[in-house]
Design a protein around this nucleic acid. Sequence first.
DNA 1: CTGAAAGCGCTTACAG
DNA 2: CTGAAAGCGCTTACAG
Lengths: 333, 333
Amino acid sequence: MSQPVTLHDVAAAAEVSVATASRALSGKNRVSRETVAKVQAVAAELGYRVDPIARALREGSTRIIGMIVPVIGNPYFAQLVDVAEEQLQRRGFELLLADSHGRIDEELRRLTVFGERKVDGIIIVPSDRSASAGALRSIRSNIALVQIDRSAGVSLADFVGVDNDVAMLLLLEHLWERGARSVAFVGADDVTSSGLERVDAFHRALERTGLTLVGQIRGQFDTNTGIAAADEIADGQLPDAIVAGSDLIAFGLISRLRKRGIRVPDDVLVTGFDGTTLSQIFTPSLTTVVQPIEGIAADAVSFLIGRIEGSDAPVRNSRLTPTLRVGESTEAR
Amino acid sequence: MSQPVTLHDVAAAAEVSVATASRALSGKNRVSRETVAKVQAVAAELGYRVDPIARALREGSTRIIGMIVPVIGNPYFAQLVDVAEEQLQRRGFELLLADSHGRIDEELRRLTVFGERKVDGIIIVPSDRSASAGALRSIRSNIALVQIDRSAGVSLADFVGVDNDVAMLLLLEHLWERGARSVAFVGADDVTSSGLERVDAFHRALERTGLTLVGQIRGQFDTNTGIAAADEIADGQLPDAIVAGSDLIAFGLISRLRKRGIRVPDDVLVTGFDGTTLSQIFTPSLTTVVQPIEGIAADAVSFLIGRIEGSDAPVRNSRLTPTLRVGESTEAR
DNA sequence: CTGAAAGCGCTTACAG
DNA sequence: CTGAAAGCGCTTACAG
């Protein structure tokens, strides 16, 4: 490809100064009608595109948004990234993606790099309910910030996520209707806010529905946690139902239960959480709570852009309502 | 956070010129021992970090690598991104990720943006076996390029992917051993290179193993293609086995076959392709060909960095050998 | 070995 | 409305 054409080239061809060319193209300064027309025509003809790096150095802003997720391999986060990217694109922002692997040190490093690269804003799924706060506070104050799915403190920055209380109530009411009276919970530990909130929400829903708790296992939001929990549960007294803190946990759970000779839903009902595409393909298809991913991403993006544009509205804590999707994993016995 | 400290601050504190400070820090120029020590000490104390944007404007290079995948929601690509990112990180590069949604126009736009942002290199999974070539040729010649998993022409840039011939031979030999004599193929269409190569490899493997072809359905590398194919196959004469072009296709296939009352492996054997984590959790666990993701990413990264460092070695076409992982989906009847 | 100067490509006060 | 100049933070010939 040929040498990129610079503003200098455009100015020369349009027979104006670079200053005027710049103003004509930006459109937000008083420039004569004819000059604007001429410069724009020349720019188009030459295929001029502003150099984002030079602009960033001069303006200190990049129109890049950084996004940090704990693990891109989790289909829920992959979907979230996908939707967020599309919405940012539409608003003229690029997405720079990084994976913290759920580790606080990596998270801090990514945040630092994003800061150095002068991103205009950051969308983050904080990896640690308390330890992430320090990392988040360390970023420069002129970088907009929004927390998504997990929080490291609602006072730190806007937050958007699912309403875990509604979710757990939907699940437990459904299980009760299907005849379950005893239930075990397999979720994530208290390191993440969603791990903590979901177990709390689960307990509140327990009280309201009258189900009996017969066991609680905590780990990560991954299939291995489900696998380990299945072994533990299979070795003890089987509950009527098991509530998993995520679809991935449910996948691991069901898979290993089956290997241990326990069938879902015949011997025990199982529910997931997230509503990933795969939950409908899985055998048995999963009864799960579907997160309103589009809405969550839309709120996060609009909060973020609002902050970038200077909004100093009070910090928001936005909880979107999920829906129940019934699958085979809780079919009546 | 306080004002970022600039090279000017460091130079002043160390009582040298910015030029000397720059040279002392870069380490690749002749500067006296003491000056280097002093500048480094001052820089460390002040917490100086070079401004990557200013450096990029000056040097024309960013130490950022762009990566474009067709769909981040596909667990295989998510794993690839994850591994590539880790390896780049270790070599001092950041990863900028974008999703082309398998569309040639989006792909071109991403490539353009990456070019403008002056990435040093691009790792791409071309979305279209022939149409992507134009887009790839349009990027500036000083940007290193490597194709991964799919190719838009081996002469365009280095390519790294799996050896589809070995893969198909492993699968068909395994099916033969398990007693299958007739087989159907469900893969992706000729738009992607892997779609084309896998069907070709499948046919070559057919000849070598002696299996009989009883049907061939082409679509995308997703679950919906598997679902649609299951309906078509269920309506006709059932083969002994079905070879799917990807794990996602196999998931959709098995799920819908089951809804149609056809059991895997009891009524028909099914194999996948990729070796995603979920293929081991799925019910039944999937017999599949495991792509050497670490190796593929490692080759791609080292080819890319080689090019960035100026290598003009002949264009490479690197095919890594996969392995067979046997699961329940082909258990002997 | 070190410093003063130029310049990467842009935007924006400052004059006119 | 337009131009000449400064400056964002850095690196690297060019002199010495």
